Amino acid sequence: MRQQVRIPLPDGGALAATMALPEGAAPVAGWPGVVVVHEIYGVEPDILDVVDLFAEHGYAAVLPDLYSHGTRAGCLARVRPRPPGSGRRVAAHLRLLDEHVANRG
């Protein structure tokens, strides 16, 4: 069953979220859980169906509305395209991490 919840944020605000739990009593250790992330357009009916599907398969699922804190335009501005070359910098950093792990042995 789907329900609306609030996720507290460090600044005192909160994200609106949709949570779905499997039917029946929870196991002693609790339900395994997943966080479902919506597309850039926000929470749409199809992603709510995904939340329900996880619950039907035995998972507690939560879908935070990432646009619910602040303005949608402000949130979208934060996901603007990265500057040219940023992908190369990330790849170079990952190569350094691989080398570090390989040399630890």
Rank of each mutant, 00 (worst) to 15 (best):
I40Q: 12
I47G: 05
F54S: 05
H69N: 15
R88S: 10
G74H: 11
A60I: 02
A77D: 14
V43P: 02
Y41R: 12
V51N: 00
L53F: 03
A61N: 01
G85T: 08
P64R: 03
G85C: 10
I40N: 12
V43C: 10
A55H: 07
Y41F: 14
C75F: 11
T71A: 13
I40R: 15
E56H: 07
G33N: 00
R78D: 10
V51D: 00
A55Q: 10
D49M: 10
D46A: 12
G58R: 02
E44V: 15
R80H: 06
G58L: 06
V50Q: 05
V51S: 04
E56S: 14
R82P: 06
V51Q: 04
A55C: 13
P83V: 05
V37Q: 04
H69K: 11
P64K: 08
L63G: 03
A55T: 12
V37W: 01
G33T: 04
T71V: 03
G87P: 00
L66T: 05
A55E: 09
L66Q: 07
H38T: 11
R80S: 09
V50N: 01
F54Y: 15
V36M: 08
G33W: 01
H57S: 12
D49S: 13
V79H: 00
Y67C: 10
T71Y: 04
L63K: 03
R88I: 00
H69A: 15
P64L: 04
R72P: 05
G74P: 12
P84W: 07
R82C: 03
A73I: 10
L63Q: 03
P81F: 08
V62D: 04
L66Y: 06
A73T: 10
V34R: 09
H69P: 07
T71F: 02
R82H: 04
I47N: 02
G58S: 09
R80A: 15
P83C: 02
P84Q: 07
L66E: 03
E44R: 15
S68R: 03
P83G: 04
V36C: 10
D65Y: 05
E56Q: 15
Y41A: 14
H38K: 12
A60M: 11
A61M: 01
H38M: 15
Y41D: 14
A60G: 02
V43Q: 09
A73N: 07
V79N: 09
P81V: 07
D52S: 11
C75Q: 13
P45N: 07
V51H: 01
D65I: 00
R88D: 13
R89C: 04
V43H: 05
V43L: 12
A61C: 01
V36L: 09
A55N: 10
I47T: 05
P64H: 09
E44H: 06
D52Q: 07
D49A: 15
E39D: 15
F54V: 07
V90F: 08
D52K: 01
R80C: 00
A55V: 11
V90Q: 06
P81C: 09
L48F: 06
A61H: 02
H57R: 15
I47W: 06
A55K: 09
G74V: 12
V62L: 11
E56C: 10
G87Q: 07
R72T: 14
D52P: 03
D46P: 06
R78M: 15
V35S: 03
G74M: 13
A61L: 02
R78S: 11
P64W: 01
G85W: 02
C75M: 12
R78E: 14
V62W: 00
Y41P: 03
R80T: 06
A60L: 11
R80F: 04
V79C: 08
